[in-house]
């Protein structure tokens, strides 16, 4: 204790104290931050179970008949693809009012999502969940997909799908984690700020090409660390942090008197 007291005016003391305070805050936050709760498991009849799940998880905002309320739109006719996308990406059920629904760990599992999707699809016709073949990236042409992506998607999602900003706190998310099915469903249904790319604007083959291009982006980067694929701003930041930082350290070393 005496040794500690003797060093309390050491010039590194504030730094160490700050580091400890930050660590403490982080541990406390991790302990008390809310984590996603799991919903109850499904039963045999998909439609009935879907309806039950809908009433439990969605009807507060979308209404008991899925006809919508002043807070949320009607879901009649949105189709299975839309429901499946929103649920498996965790965007629905929404947990807070924010500029846009955030992706988060899904509240319902894949089977439950399929059941709710089936229930909504039974209320009115809409785009259905794509088949495995429709979204198979190995069947697509990455080069053609890249050209389509740059023309139709890159202005919001960035040229390789790293994401980008929209107005008023909304944003186009990064696509690195999205599954081929999610990408297909998003193009088909246009969630939130995203426009709809129906089969007349981007054909089924076009959509598969886009998926092939995005999956191709997950290959290792030939040039080394990707630095987030964010372009010149991150490159400029790194040249000062790494390059200039190391060289100034070297300059201090060289410029110091040897004798």
């Amino acid at each position: 204790m005496k040794a500690l007291a003797a060093r309390r005016r050491h010039r590194l003391a504030p730094v160490i104290l700050m580091a400890l305070a930050l660590l403490f805050t982080g541990v406390v936050y991790a302990a008390i931050a809310p984590s996603a709760a799991q919903a109850d498991t499904a039963s045999a009849d998909d439609l009935t179970e879907g309806e039950r799940l809908f009433i439990t998880n969605c009807s507060t905002c979308h209404g008991l008949d899925a006809e919508g309320t002043p807070e949320a739109p009607s879901l009649i006719g949105v189709g299975a693809a839309s429901v499946h996308f929103q649920i498996v990406t965790g965007r629905m059920p929404m947990d807070a009012n924010s500029p846009q629904a955030e992706a988060k760990p899904p509240q319902l599992d894949e089977e439950q999502a399929q059941q709710v999707a089936a229930y909504i699809a039974s209320l009115g016709p809409g785009p259905s969940i794509p088949s495995a073949e429709q979204v198979d990236p190995t069947l697509g042409d990455a080069a053609a997909g890249g050209a389509l992506f740059r023309t139709n998607c890159a202005m919001c999602h960035n040229a390789v799908g790293a994401g980008g900003a929209l107005t008023e706190g909304k944003y186009a998310p990064a696509l690195y984690e999205s599954t081929p099915t999610e990408i297909y469903e998003a193009m088909l249904t246009g969630p939130q700020s995203m426009p709809v790319f129906n089969d007349a604007t981007l054909t089924e083959e076009d959509k598969r090409d886009v998926i092939a291009y995005l999956i191709e982006q997950r290959e290792p980067n030939p040039g080394g660390l990707s630095l987030g694929s964010l372009g010149p701003v991150s490159e400029g930041l790194w040249v000062f942090v790494v390059g200039m930082g190391v060289l100034i350290c070297a300059a201090v070393w060289i410029g110091s008197r040897s004798s």
């Binding site: 994401g163 900003a165 186009a172 964010l230 010149p232 701003v233 490159e235 400029g236």
Partner: peptide, 14 residues
Amino acid sequence: SIVGAGAQPDWYML
């Protein structure tokens, strides 16, 4: 016809 999100110049032109 194409502009990507995050279209920026190198830092000294930023």
